[in-house]
Simulated scan of single mutants.
Amino acid sequence: MRRTAALLGLPLLMIVAGCAPAGSEPTLTDSEPRRDAFTSRATEVAAAWRPGPAWTTGYLPLQDPTVLVGDPGFTPDTEAAFRNGWYRDQVDLSAAKPADGTVRFPDGSLTVPLISAAEAYGQLDQGDPPPCGGRPKGPAGPKFPGRPGAGGPTVEPGPDGPVSSTPFTACVPLTVTAAKLGTAPVRTSRGEAQVPAWLFTVEGLSAPVARIAVAPSAVAAAPEPTAPANPAPQGVVGAQDLRSVDGATLTWRLGVGSCDTAITPLVQERDDVVVVGGGVTTATGPCNAMMKLEPVTATLKAPLGDRPVLDVLTGAPLRLTAS
């Protein structure tokens, strides 16, 4: 089951780096005292980036293989099910593999083998929801009386009802009613591509859930990152993932301590890569050892395009995760 981390609000301070010519020293606008430490390490990370030929010639996704195609119109129930991969099917899904498909990149195309609808659904479905403490275990709708909005009687708190006052969001699977082969936009090492995908129609959602249909044998492996030998600078923290890419605007999550303050996004922008991380002020008094994921946003001087976004601590390319 996927774990979730608390996302706390923070001021989004815009730290913007100029797009420097290759080989020159990038500039960084940042009033924080950690600027020099971040800049030095980011320069090492960028210089060590050597992804190999598959980065520019193969299919190397930098995004989760489950993609929402449009606004799904989530409710708390359906969003919880989507995040956890809880599905049930009410349609026969073919196990026959379709003909090869085409991945269309901004710089060309690639023919790839595909998986069947049944195999894609098997990857999509992550298991059943946990027990619901007396609540019905089925999707909302007229077929399932007893759930709020189902058109039937509801179980009210009291001697004959559940004791818990927890909101009704814990154990509802999504119901798949149809599947067809189409395409979905996916961020890859060669920029955003249109990729063959099985589009699953889900009861209660206004947009299909897509599962990438490219066979595992056609997916290139991500390059091994090369991290600087020196330990992480004091007050500089790493990026965990990308949450969104909108032209030149990036949102990513930092791994910070639960008592860290003055959380600030840090960026170094180059022609070929973008290196991101963050600056924090660590607590001087007692604090627990919990890490939390903190979203931050910054705007580049140019759209990201096909440039990889690298973590300043590990040198690893960041993946775009479901927001």
Rank of each mutant, 00 (worst) to 15 (best):
L10Y: 04
A210M: 02
G182I: 11
A54P: 08
L60P: 01
P196T: 00
P148I: 06
A197Y: 00
R50Q: 09
A178E: 15
S94G: 12
L13K: 09
T78W: 12
T39M: 15
V176G: 03
D125L: 10
V312G: 11
M290V: 08
G255V: 12
L7T: 08
R135M: 11
E294C: 11
P61H: 01
P72G: 04
A218Q: 00
R190I: 08
P72R: 04
G149S: 07
A150T: 00
I212R: 07
R135S: 07
A95S: 02
E294I: 06
I15N: 12
F74P: 05
L205F: 03
Y59F: 14
T314Q: 09
T102D: 14
Q234I: 07
R270A: 15
V163P: 13
V155G: 09
Q268L: 14
D311K: 00
T314E: 02
T57K: 07
D92C: 13
G138N: 15
K97W: 13
V163H: 07
R319L: 14
P286L: 03
E25A: 01
P130C: 07
V312S: 04
N230D: 10
D271V: 02
L250P: 02
S206H: 13
L13C: 09
P106L: 03
R270G: 15
K292N: 04
G158K: 15
G235Y: 06
A262V: 07
P225Q: 00
D64R: 07
R319Y: 14
S116E: 01
N230Q: 12
P139N: 03
E269W: 01
P216L: 15
W55L: 14
A99H: 05
E32N: 11
G315T: 00
F82M: 02
A99D: 09
T75S: 12
P167I: 12
G204Y: 05
S323R: 15
A48L: 03
P61D: 06
K97T: 06
T175H: 04
A322W: 11
D306K: 10
P228S: 13
D125Q: 04
V45D: 10
K180W: 14
T261K: 10
G101K: 06
T154I: 12
G161A: 11
S24W: 00
G146H: 03
S94V: 09
G70W: 02
A42W: 05
A316W: 12
I15C: 13
A178Q: 06
G277C: 15
T321I: 09
P185Y: 02
G247I: 14
A262Y: 11
L28E: 14
F144G: 05
A222G: 02
D128T: 02
S164M: 13
